[in-house]
């Protein structure tokens, strides 16, 4: 299956910005289940400084805002060929050793809430336990657009009992690590059956199961990712895999809009 994707991020600043840098992680990965056929990025109000692959093998582009800019637009589009692997990403690869994915990060510190979720998972086969975990989280944390703050930790999401895909993913990662599975955050694009236009990019979790390798879990949709899921960036948590992060000089307020379109060709 070939998916065509377009992704536009638009910042408006209420005052001219003299200097700023943005780090982009927006280029889909190529691996056995997906191969990027074409991918281009166009910048308005900014200039590309450099690019490299980070320690999760995410493609990173560093861009700088043009002096005096009031609007920044990042538009990417391309085509990606997808194969269905039933949620299995495959063996571990890349510079980061597997034990690193057992490491708690500030967003995925365990606590009462996550430990209580883990305690409700009964013994069994690893894959079954992880599916059970995914279902339990979906059940206990209501998916609600705009419900959470982007800096919420896993524990904060459990306490609030609501959140978005990012929160579901953080809670899953935290719990899976408590259960002894290396786990990571994955962000990317998702082809929805009923429409082309997306709210934003999507996020789901991956856990490492001996014998199978990395396996994906989309808690928010209650399934394992299939050929509609385009993996873009992975990391220990959201901050490693965020599509965009930046610093700016000055006090200008920003407003952000994101447009994502995914369609089957």
């Amino acid at each position: 299956m070939i998916l065509s994707i377009s992704h536009a991020t638009r910042y408006k600043f209420d005052a001219p910005v003299s200097y700023g840098l943005q780090q982009l992680r927006q280029t889909p990965k190529s691996y056995r289940a997906q191969s990027v056929l074409t991918w281009t990025t166009r910048l308005t109000g900014a200039k590309k400084q450099l690019e490299f692959d980070d320690y999760h093998r995410n493609r990173v582009e560093l861009i700088s805002l043009n002096d005096g800019v009031e609007e920044l637009v990042i538009e990417s589009e391309g085509r990606v060929e997808m194969a269905d692997t039933h949620g299995i990403v495959g063996p571990h690869a890349g510079p980061a050793p597997l034990w690193l994915f057992a490491r708690a990060t500030p967003l995925t510190q365990s606590g009462r809430g996550t430990r209580s979720i883990v305690s409700q998972i009964s013994n069994g086969e690893p894959l079954d336990r992880l599916h059970a975990l995914s279902a339990l989280i979906k059940d206990q944390i209501a998916y609600e657009v705009g419900a959470s703050e982007s800096h919420w930790t896993a524990e904060e999401a459990v306490a609030a009992a609501k959140g978005v895909c990012q929160d579901h993913t953080h809670v899953f990662i935290t719990c899976a690590r408590i259960m002894g599975f290396p786990a990571r955050y994955s962000s990317g694009f998702l082809l929805l059956d009923d429409r082309e236009e997306q709210e934003a990019t999507h996020a789901w979790a991956e856990a490492y199961v001996d014998g199978l390798g990395w396996v994906g879990f989309d808690v928010s949709n209650g399934i394992s990712p299939d050929e509609r899921y385009v993996r873009v960036a992975t990391g220990l948590d959201y901050s490693d895999a965020a599509p965009i992060r930046g610093v700016r000089m000055g006090n200008a307020e920003e407003s952000l809009s994101v447009a994502v379109k995914v369609a089957q060709q």
Partner: peptide, 24 residues
């Protein structure tokens, strides 16, 4: 590098680590 490490650091250079990573 406040972009890559402690965001509140005023001693560093945003993007320094990216330049390092790109080998420059």
């Amino acid at each position: 590098d406040p972009l890559n490490f402690k965001p509140e650091s005023t001693l560093g250079v945003p993007g320094l680590f990216d330049v390092y990573r790109s080998g420059a």
